[in-house]
């Protein structure tokens, strides 16, 4: 790391999380730069969600630390917004009420919040549904609202916990691209947890692979695809390469399996790309 390297927005340093006797996460370390999307993948039940909760400040570390913009996180930090797999909309609030929630609870008056809330609601494509209740919305619409709610507080960090896992395949495809489009307008440091390898590659600049019990970082992969990204990215050569690599690593039983031949084409990336070597996709 040189002096001119941007300070990591999220720094996870030897994070270990135990529940009673059982360790779920062991010695997890990685950084997320401002404006970078890091995907996290791993088999089910490997603690991806626990990792997210630690970042979100909902589960203080047993050992190690999580820092956001230099400050250690032990409880929900300012400027961190979470999008949940279960959408987490309050059923008794309208879409407007939900999207405005982060602002309301920080003390902003409804009148002051209104313009931003309306703008976000239309940004996520829910214009006209301001007064609807969550039960009247489809899953995809609810998640859009969840996203709008997260964006409303103008976060520095976005934490996405398998946000599209509860949606049908078509909606998921649509929303992935929607999310990328929206993100492009205001690139924010994002940790994107998913169990879908395709999704991880599509969304992320780098991919953290967790595996084992307890989970540790098995590998960090540089996706090496430029932005902005659209649907066509999925057909690119690079995408296929990264995906195949991930598939083999993640799908083989547990950690510590030897990497297949295609590993040579895929980079290991331990540090975020520094300003000096910003050459685009390729080995660092």
């Amino acid at each position: 790391m040189t002096e001119s390297a941007p300070e990591a927005m999220i720094r996870i340093d030897r994070l270990t999380k135990r529940y009673g006797e059982r360790a779920v996460l062991q010695d997890v370390s990685f950084d997320v730069a401002p404006g970078e999307i890091v995907s996290v993948v791993g088999p089910s039940g490997c603690g991806k969600t626990t990792l997210l909760r630690s970042i979100a400040g909902l589960a203080p570390p047993s050992e190690g630390s999580v820092s956001i913009a230099g400050r250690e996180v032990t409880e929900p930090a300012e400027g961190v917004a979470v999008v949940f797999q279960h959408f987490g909309l309050f059923p008794w609030k309208t879409v407007f009420g939900n999207v405005a929630y982060g602002l309301t609870v920080a003390g902003m008056r409804r009148k002051d919040a209104e313009p931003r809330v309306r703008q976000l609601i239309s940004l996520v494509g829910l214009e006209g549904f301001e007064k609807s209740y969550p039960y009247q919305l489809s899953g995809g619409m609810q998640q859009r609202a969840g996203l709008a709610r997260a964006l409303a507080i103008e976060p520095r960090v976005l934490v996405m916990d398998e946000p599209f896992a509860s949606l049908d395949a078509q909606t998921r495809d649509l929303l992935q691209l929607e999310l990328l489009r929206i993100w492009e307008q205001r690139p924010t440091a994002m940790v994107f947890v998913t169990h879908s390898i395709d999704e991880a590659v599509l969304m992320g600049d780098r991919i953290v692979i967790l595996s084992g019990r307890p989970s540790h970082v098995h590998d960090i992969v540089d996706v090496g695809i430029g932005r902005p990204r659209g649907r066509e990215v999925v057909d690119s050569e690079r995408f296929r390469v990264v995906r195949d690599y991930l598939w083999t690593v993640v799908m083989s039983n547990g950690a510590g399996q030897s990497r297949p031949g295609s590993a040579d084409e895929v980079t290991r990336a331990g540090d975020p790309p520094s300003a000096e070597s910003a050459e685009g996709p390729g080995p660092i």
Partner: peptide, 27 residues
């Protein structure tokens, strides 16, 4: 640019409920 939205309420509820149950089962 907004996509046409169809709200099938029952499906949404089921979806959210499934997501909730799954989330709860894991935590």
């Amino acid at each position: 640019m907004s996509l046409p939205a169809q709200p099938p309420a029952a499906a949404a509820a089921g979806t959210a409920a499934r997501g909730l149950r799954a989330a709860r089962a894991r935590q």
